[in-house]
Design a protein around this nucleic acid. Structure first.
Lengths: 223, 223
DNA sequence: CAGAATCCGAACCGATACTG
DNA sequence: CAGTATCGGTTCGGATTCTG
């Protein structure tokens, strides 16, 4: 048992708002937990699935720390089964601009700006998606601000390559600005499609697989 | 020499804007460097002074990493002396909303909201200020949104306590919203005073000592 | 199975000492 | 002044185990 008294933990120990903030949410995976909870209360196992790569002990640590700082709360339902869920408090929800602005900024690393010569954007890049999804070898065609590229899910890897995918399972098209709103949770994918800000072609299961593979929470898709 | 090839470094390795962003600015002290450079180019020694607690080693690492990701650039002036300065690139300046929203959020840890019963805001708290300033034992009276508290700099410590400081060297009064604008760099202290959004009483050297003690960069004060 | 504790190698952090 | 080299302590993250 780590002594949770101050002083043991690594702290910036500075009278500075940024330091104070990062003392509470600057550790690894902390903001990921916050983002995952932005779309509603979740259970430990749901979080663990969504935060693939985190490790059980880290998730425990982060949830404990966030609870100690009153950014998340544990709700133990009165129903019999072990129904502990974690949810953001108001202070936790107040982090929406933080995860939002970070996500919007990070978006430019996923999708290069139209006029940008992608000298400093490695394009043939691979990630390991959350679930070992995409062992089938599906490809998706994305067009963001008239920049076209393809995503391929195969062998538990997600590969982004330049160019136009042939026979993609899904065709997704939108603007960077709209995609920013989506990752910030200000709009869902289906609503963006309805408003004409995005276009999505492909079978419903394929769409679902695609967003699962790239790690979009379901709450960003619809409802 | 660390091999800068991918794989050696700890990465989130997820196709997710937040992960991509934190891969570049999620390490300790990185956003502090970015914030420090928001107010204009700086030299290594200036950064080191401003990021008290960081250590030469880490500052080097962070600057190297930020430069590798093209968030900062090194400018070596043509003048003879070693005049290397670091400045934010456009991609680096695009982080303004990130450090801004984090600072605004962290502000509530410094100053409790008016209606907030500060049950989860430890108040008798101490920090070690950047410079070993305040060995004289000065106190400052702050009033933020009608919440009054006092800051005492003594023995190389900065102590925040509830209540009204007696015979303070500086009296500072403003709103949380204005203070947020100040820490985000959207307005300087003197401009806020001019506009009537803040009030500052005390001798100029004392004011300067106060802001130095709490770690405000000079660029946030005037000009 | 959900949730959490323990162990351990590897990566990271931070202080000091050192170099040009 | 502007960094690099080194080294002990801390944190991370995977695997395993434990408890209901």
């Amino acid at each position: 048992m780590a002594d949770h008294k101050a002083g043991s933990k690594r702290s910036y120990d500075r009278f500075c708002p940024l330091s104070l903030a990062l003392d509470q949410v600057g550790e690894r995976w902390t903001l990921h937990v916050v983002l995952a909870l932005m779309s509603g209360p979740k259970r430990y196992s749901q979080l663990k699935r969504h935060l693939s790569g985190a490790g059980a002990n880290i998730l425990s640590d982060r949830l404990r720390g966030l609870a100690a700082n009153h950014l998340v709360g544990r709700s133990t339902a009165d129903s019999p089964g072990s129904e502990v869920t974690y949810h953001l408090t108001e202070r936790g929800r107040a982090l929406a601009p933080v995860v939002g602005s970070l996500s919007v900024w990070g978006l430019s690393l996923l999708i290069p700006a139209p006029g940008d010569d992608d000298t400093h954007t490695v394009f043939d890049q691979t990630w390991t998606p959350p679930a070992a999804a995409g062992r089938t070898g599906e490809t998706y065609r994305w067009t963001i601000d008239d920049v076209e590229f393809e995503l391929t899910a195969r062998n538990g890897e997600l590969i982004r390559t330049r160019g136009r995918a042939t026979r993609p399972a899904v065709i997704f098209q939108t603007t960077g600005s709209t995609l920013g709103d989506i990752v910030c949770g200000q709009i869902t994918v289906t609503d963006a499609v309805k408003q004409g800000d995005a276009s999505l072609k492909g079978s419903k299961p394929a769409v679902r697989r695609m967003f699962a593979t790239i790690g979009f929470p379901l709450a960003r898709i619809d409802s």
